[in-house]
Structure formats: C-alpha cells, structure tokens
Design a protein around this nucleic acid. Sequence first.
DNA 1: GTTTTCATAGTACCGCTGTACTATAAAGTC
DNA 2: GACTTTATAGTACAGCGGTACTATGAAAAC
Lengths: 205, 205
Amino acid sequence: MPKRVDHTQRRAHIADALVRVAARDGLHAVTLRAVAAEAGMSLNLVQYYFDTKAELLHAALLRLERLSHERWAARLAALDDPDSARACLEAFVDEALPADEARHTFRLVWMSYAVLAMTDPELAAQPFVAGPDRLERQLAGILTTAQSAGEIAAGLDPDAEAARLLSLSHGVGTSVLVGQRTPEQARDVMRYHLARLFSAAPAHP
Amino acid sequence: MPKRVDHTQRRAHIADALVRVAARDGLHAVTLRAVAAEAGMSLNLVQYYFDTKAELLHAALLRLERLSHERWAARLAALDDPDSARACLEAFVDEALPADEARHTFRLVWMSYAVLAMTDPELAAQPFVAGPDRLERQLAGILTTAQSAGEIAAGLDPDAEAARLLSLSHGVGTSVLVGQRTPEQARDVMRYHLARLFSAAPAHP
DNA sequence: GTTTTCATAGTACCGCTGTACTATAAAGTC
DNA sequence: GACTTTATAGTACAGCGGTACTATGAAAAC
C-alpha cells in the first residue's frame, strides 16, 4: 500500500485536523491522539510527519494565518471597485467578523494561540505581531489614499484610524465569540464606525 | 496549631494564588499543585477548601471580576468631577488598558478564561456576557447624559458609541497583551478615539 | 533480484494531574 | 476529662499525555 506521498499535503491535512479540534473542543483539547483521530490516521503517523507537538502547533498556526490572509486577499481582488476605500474597508470589516464557520474558527483558534503566546515565550509571538501589523499598515495605506481623494476628512490621522479599525474589529469579534453580541449586532457596530469615519468628512474639494 | 480560620479569606487567598499562576505561566499551567505551591500550602489544603478544580476555577473567575469591578467603581468615585462625561470615559479607558500589573493580569487571565468558555459549555459563559454588558450599559448611560448636556454631538448613537468604546478598549488591550502595541501606543489610540468622540460635537447651545 | 528506503502500525514508558483515602494533633464542646 | 470537630499532612491510584522503540510490508533503486 505504501506509495510515495506528498509530505506537504499530508502536513496540511494534519494541521487542518488540529484546527478543527481546536475550534470544536478548544486548544487545550488538542492532543496528538485527538488530532490523529480527527485526521483519520494513527498516532504514529502524526508523529511521523511532525517530530514534536510544538512543531505541529507551530505549523498549524502558520497555516491558519496563511489561509486567512489568502481569504482576505481574494476578497480584495474580487471587489467591483478596488479604488473605493469604503468598499475596501467594508470588505475588511466583513472578513474580520466571525459570521460564518471559517471566520469563526479562525478568530477562535487565533485567539487561543494568542493567549498561549502571552505567557509562553517558546511559542513565537512573532505571528501575533507581524500579522496584525501588516494588516494595519495595509489599512493605513488605504486610508491615506482615501484622504488624498477626499473620501475621508483631512483632519483624520490615517495611522490612528487604521489602529482603531483593526482593534475595534478585533474587540467586536471577540464579543461575538464570547456570546455578548450576535454577528449581526457586531456588523452594525462596525457599520456605525465606518459611517462615522466617512460622514465626518467636511465637504471635500 | 489548628485554630479556627476564616474560610472565605482562605478561599480568596487560594483564588489569588491561582490568578498569579495563570498570569505568570498561563491558565493551562494552573494545576492544583502549582496553585498550592503559589499559595504556600500543601495540595491537600487546596482540596480541603475547594472540592474540585472546576469549583476553584469558577471561584477565581468570580473574584477576578469582582476585584476589577471594584477598582473601576473606586476610580469613578475618586473623580474630581463625576459629572464630566469626558473625565468618566478617560477613567474608563485608563482602567481598561493593561498599563500596570494588576490591569495586565486581569486582562490576560480574563481572556484566558474567555477563550476556555468559547468551547467549554461547562464553564459558565455568563460572566463573559454579564460583565461586559453591565459596563456597556453604564457607558451608554454616561454617553446619553453627555449628549443631553451637549458634551457630544446630537447625531451620535449612545448605545453604538458605548459598544464601540468597550470593544475598542478590549481590542486595543489585546494588542498590548500580544506585544503588538506598547501601553503608551494603546493609550494614544484611545485618546484619539475620545478626541474624535468629543470633537465631533457641533457647537452646542 | 537484492537491498535500501518509505509509509504505516503496535506497544511501552514515564511523568503529571485530579481525586480519594487515611492519619493526626490541636481546638472546641459538653 | 471524654468526645467531637477542624485544619493540616501523607500517600496512593488510575488515567492520560508526549515520546521512543520496534516491526513490517511495499515500493524504489541499483
């Protein structure tokens, strides 16, 4: 039976299984045996593809980030009017909210990892800074362009607005995850924010 | 040696030890033995005061919430001008940011619990809704009053603004915990938000 | 065709964790 | 003073977790 298999694909399969377990039962329930069962293989195989649990956790985190980044890029690319800051930001807000299973899973598992990283220096804190940082710079760029185009008020600080957008979407997303808000209520808060952001523009030239 | 001791105080002492362990090593590192060591007592004693680990975790969460609530109430009570919405909100923002150890610990441990509760239905999700809900209503009340007094623009929605404030402070706080922002940068973002909130007021009567 | 490599499986070990059972000495009760 | 309660300690146990060691059949290499 043993044919030559694609290790990269196998590792991705296992990482996906880990993410499913973490999303369903929590990151604390992620054990090699649980991941193996979820992936439909034996414990030995998981260990065959990942030398250690830490390595598996790391790989799954990287994959999670990459998939999320790709979803966001695809969302941007599919925009009717890629030059409209409002459309871009609405896409961002929509993508950031845990409204469907994929986004819910991403937020939940990402937060689980983030909480781990807060006390565990082994778990590279880098992804939790680099990922949001990149997003924030991207948002700042969009806002700067929008400001030049008069879409938002000249008095606003694009960097601060980007930080506000990112942090707000994160906080609102969390409130959904803990059950304080429904996804719809969260969306309303974000829409309100965007409305204030754009309505604050004084008559532009 | 066995004198009569105050059980309530003993339980608080143990709960505090748990919070310290969770803040230092992560909630996953909270074991009965670790808590006992941190509290300076034997494993047996911890079990004597808490029948089960779940009960201890629950008690620690309740205590954490209560202490935070009391800090916030004390902060409000100490305000020079309790009627100034701006002063109230600045106190809120300051209290919400993980700028010193107590607030850092609170945010970190609270988030650890919240992440647990996202997948574990046993761990009552109630505190994660009730606490923020109460705060949000309080903020909404302050904002409504402020609007009547002309401190903020009439066109604003106090409920939405309260949700925005709470979620933003939460998101910014998280960004500090993961190391994306310094507490100072976080404070700047929140100050910017407050500035926008109050500056957006058209000349009031 | 032999030998090596690869994908898979079985099993065992050690440490840690929550929990339970038992013991004991001091304090309170009568 | 006899007896009960209470705060503390010791120890044991069963389960689970990561990891390591060994085996095996099939493909690939030569």
